[in-house]
Simulated scan of single mutants.
Amino acid sequence: MPVRVVESSAPSPAPGQDANPGHALPPACTLLGVGQTFAGTQNVSSSQKDEAWKVNVRIQGFDPAHGYLCGIMEALNVPYAETPVVTFWEGEIIDSKNYTFYTGKWEATPDDDVKHWSQFSSFSPLLSQVKADGGKSLDLSNYPYIFMNSDQLYFPLQRWKEQYFVNVSVDCGLTIAGFYYVCFSCIDGSINGFYYDPNSSPFQKLELKSTNEGRSGFSFSSYQLQ
């Protein structure tokens, strides 16, 4: 299996310079960038069980001009797994330019999108405009949260989609068919998310906190992502 991580980040434009004319870039955030790590839990409770997996996340790539970021996620205490389960994920930054609040894939309907984004209190002021046009007309450049569906810029919301298993086979008994609605706070570096998969228990909550501001703290085992 892979043995080494390859990291990359798109070059940032000069201060005051826009990578795409006509679109203002948001201000800097030192809590989200390539190499940044986060630790916390994912609640996978259902009517039959009450369980939380320990989770580590590392940001590995970031391209703000295209609303893109990626990284690895490590689940540490997955039942029946002999080792931590590592997945590679790619993220879509909700910037009203590259990506809107409506997912348009992965079996998510606009109603699913609104229900999940509405789990975040910071989404409330945006709700009426999102229902009107998916949020296309919103200016998110100065919003203090990042919603995900990062070298030192920030945006409000994101989506994270696990693409493949890094260190286990696809028949490991786990699924990565769904994706995460994610909200990153540039105020304290916390990440909250909810997993969506119509075939899994709903609203599985992801809660992470920054662990290495200034690039110190725990580190992952190394993997080569191919």
Rank of each mutant, 00 (worst) to 15 (best):
P2M: 14
P2I: 14
P2E: 15
V3E: 02
R4C: 06
S12E: 09
S12V: 14
S12T: 13
S12R: 10
P13C: 15
P13N: 12
P15N: 12
P15V: 14
P15R: 14
P15M: 05
G16W: 05
G16C: 07
A19W: 04
A19K: 00
P21I: 10
G22H: 15
G22Y: 14
A24S: 14
L25C: 09
A28W: 09
C29M: 01
T30A: 07
L31S: 03
L31T: 05
V34A: 15
G35F: 05
G35N: 08
Q36M: 11
A39L: 04
A39N: 03
A39V: 00
G40T: 01
Q42D: 00
Q42A: 01
Q42I: 10
V44R: 11
S46V: 00
S47A: 10
Q48L: 06
E51I: 02
V55G: 01
N56W: 07
V57F: 03
I59H: 03
G61P: 00
D63I: 11
H66N: 10
G67F: 05
Y68R: 11
L69E: 09
C70A: 04
G71Y: 04
I72D: 05
M73S: 09
E74P: 01
N77W: 03
V78M: 02
V78N: 06
P79N: 06
A81T: 02
E82Y: 00
V86E: 05
G91L: 09
G91I: 07
E92I: 04
I93G: 07
Y99N: 06
Y99E: 02
T100M: 00
Y102A: 00
T103H: 08
T103R: 09
G104V: 11
K105D: 09
K105S: 09
K105T: 11
K105P: 00
W106M: 06
E107A: 14
T109G: 11
S118D: 01
S118K: 08
S122K: 11
S122A: 15
S124W: 04
P125R: 13
S128F: 03
S128I: 05
V130E: 04
S137W: 04
L138W: 10
L138D: 05
N142I: 11
N142Q: 15
Y143C: 12
P144N: 08
P144Y: 05
D151A: 09
Y154F: 10
Y154N: 06
L157A: 08
W160D: 05
W160Y: 05
K161V: 10
Q163L: 09
S169E: 11
D171G: 02
C172N: 13
G173Q: 01
T175N: 02
A177Q: 03
Y180D: 04
Y180E: 06
V182S: 00
I187P: 01
D188K: 14
G189W: 07
S190K: 13
G193C: 07
F194G: 09
Y195P: 07
Y196P: 05
Y196E: 07
Y196C: 06
N199I: 11
S200W: 12
S201Q: 11
F203G: 04
F203L: 12
Q204K: 13
L208N: 04
T211D: 04
E213N: 06
R215M: 12
S216C: 11
S219N: 13
S219G: 10
F220G: 07
S221A: 15
S221V: 15
S222I: 13
Y223W: 15
Y223N: 14
Y223H: 14
Q224A: 15
Q224F: 10
